[in-house]
Structure formats: structure tokens, C-alpha cells
Design a protein around this nucleic acid. Structure first.
Lengths: 164, 164
DNA sequence: TATTGTTATACTCTATAACTATA
DNA sequence: TATAGTTATAGAGTATAACAATA
């Protein structure tokens, strides 16, 4: 028996998920994302950060001080939503708005000292949550799912970038 | 060069996604789910259905007439949200509330004749959208991602079911 | 006493439109 | 004229609390 078939037999009566549902990519992606979000939220609770917050802080660290909209463009966040997110992160003392060197309309967003300090800790908690989430998979599949999802996401990203 | 590295080099200046972001499972799952939702919405527009609606109709067909909360429990939808969703599907004439054979508090949700008629068409459009979404992957990876995600989702589902 | 469906309510997330200061 | 940030506002989506009917 395959591992999948074995798992399905282990489910209590009436708790099973019908096969046609389980074969829908949308169901699988959303359910997995939801479950990871739960795990992540709990792991990052000490810092009061969401997974999305963490992604944005990481993005700023990687790309340096950028205008809000540059960050939002890559992270798929509307510019009005970015205002709220940066407001929030600024209130917590993790980032600060400074004047942009060449465009006086724009802000440049910097990590504060405190932001630089907690980011590695939060990233560590995040990675641990991710590992926990994936721990039910064999090691080989953990590598495979990263590789395939990266390929998929990058393909679509490339496809869109070339349209503009 | 790996296919991934090749793709990254093809991106216009400033449009790249930093590697540490790309290595976050949350980013990958949410970005993939978002992209598929877009594709799915467009594909199902002729029926005015979302991917989630389609999943619920499919669930009813597979499991037969069930109370609203039974559907919601499996599909991770709150019972108050289920009221709205069933209201909506009922207004469109795709499902109907009938009295439950043994529990007079509950409703049993049935597909109407029209629901049974459009469901195969909608499923077909949905599958086509899914294929389009995955078409950028090699055939082998398309199989692998299904297998791994099913394993992951079922493991977590089993894990939760056994807690209660 | 607990549970199903329902309503009313609130809260989050996100998006639209309009404003200001720049470019 | 177009764009960055902002505000106010409105719309989804979802969750909480309370209620009637029933178990």
C-alpha cells in the first residue's frame, strides 16, 4: 500500500476528504498555506509579527532602503496597504522612514537598530516553524517541494515581468 | 546552469526576488495559491463561481446531502460563513436546502438539477485552468507536486483528526 | 445542557478615489 | 502630466455573540 493510501485508511469515519477534492491544486495549496500560517503565527507570537511582516523585513534587509511602493510591488502588496504595514512596523520601532536621496516625494525605508537585532531571531523562529510544518515529509520530498514551487513561482513571475 | 538559475538571470533589473525570500515556504505557497486563484477566477467567470464554490459543490456531490456544518468542517469554513455561501449558491439555483431526514434542526444540502448540470462543465473549466497554471512545469514535476502536497496536507489532517 | 441554523455585529484585509507634494 | 505617500472610505471575507428550534 502507498503511504497516501495508508494515511487515508487511518482517518476516523466521516473525516475523510474525498479524492476529487484532494486532487484539486487549489485545495492543496490553500490548505497547506493556511496550516503553515497557523504554525508561523504561533512561532512568531513572541515578536508579534506575522509571516508577511517577516517577509517584508527580510526584503528590506536584502534590497536595502527602498520606497514603499518598490517593496509592495515585489511582495504583492497594494501601496495603500503598505502605508499601514510600514506604520505598524515603525510604531514597533523595527523600521523607519527617512527621506529618499534623489526623490523628495518618496520615503526610503530602513531597518532600525532594533529591527536589525530582532530580525535574525525572528527568522530563526520562522525557519523552525517551517521545518516543523514540513517535518511530516521525507527529507527527499522536502527538497523536491522547494525546488518545484520555486520553479513554478519564478516561471509565473518571469512571465508577468516580460509582459510589461 | 540549472533551470532556476537561468530563469533568474532572465529577469529585468530590479525585478528579481531575493533568494532568502524565495526560500520561504510561506512566500512560495501563498504566491502560488494567489496566482492559481487569479487563473481560476477568470476560467470560472462564465459560471460566476469561485474556486471555493466549485470545491463545495464537488464536496456535496461526493459526500451526498449533508448538514451545512458538516460541509464547513471539512472545507474549513465557519458555520456562519457557510450560511452566506449556501444562501448564494441557492439563489443561483445550484443547491437547495431540504429537511434533514433524522435531525429537524439541520438542513440537508442537495445539488439541484441545474447544479448537477453545470458542475461537470465548471469542473472541466477548473481542470483546464489548473493545467494552464502548471503548464510551465515539466510533466514529471507536475506529478510530483501533487503527490507531495497530498502527502503533506493529509498528514496534517490526520494529525488534527486524531487530536479530537 | 448541547447543537443547527440564523442574525447582527465587528474586525481584518484589501482596494478605490481623492488629496498633497513633488517630479 | 504623472508619480509617492497619505487619507477616507467601502467592499470582501471571516469570526464572535446571542437567539430560536430542536436534540
Amino acid at each position: 500500500m502507498t503511504p497516501l493510501a495508508k494515511m487515508k485508511r487511518a482517518l476516523p469515519e466521516g473525516q475523510d476528504i474525498p479524492e476529487p477534492i484532494l486532487n484539486r491544486m487549489g485545495f492543496l495549496l490553500n490548505r497547506a498555506a493556511y496550516k503553515l500560517r497557523e504554525t508561523m503565527e504561533r512561532a512568531l507570537a513572541p515578536h508579534g509579527l506575522t509571516g508577511k511582516d517577516l517577509g517584508i523585513l527580510l526584503f528590506i534587509r536584502e534590497k536595502g532602503a527602498l520606497p514603499q511602493q518598490e517593496i509592495g510591488k515585489c511582495m504583492h502588496v497594494d501601496r495603500t496597504t503598505m502605508v499601514d504595514i510600514i506604520d505598524d512596523l515603525e510604531k514597533r520601532g523595527l523600521v523607519e522612514r527617512k527621506s529618499h536621496p534623489t526623490d523628495r516625494r518618496a520615503h526610503a525605508i530602513y531597518l532600525t537598530a532594533r529591527g536589525k537585532e530582532i530580525l535574525p531571531q525572528a527568522l530563526h523562529l520562522g525557519k523552525a516553524a517551517e521545518r516543523k510544518f514540513l517535518s511530516l515529509l521525507p527529507a527527499r520530498d522536502r527538497k523536491e517541494i522547494f525546488r518545484i514551487l520555486k520553479h513554478l513561482v519564478l516561471s509565473h513571475h518571469l512571465h508577468e515581468a516580460n509582459k510589461e
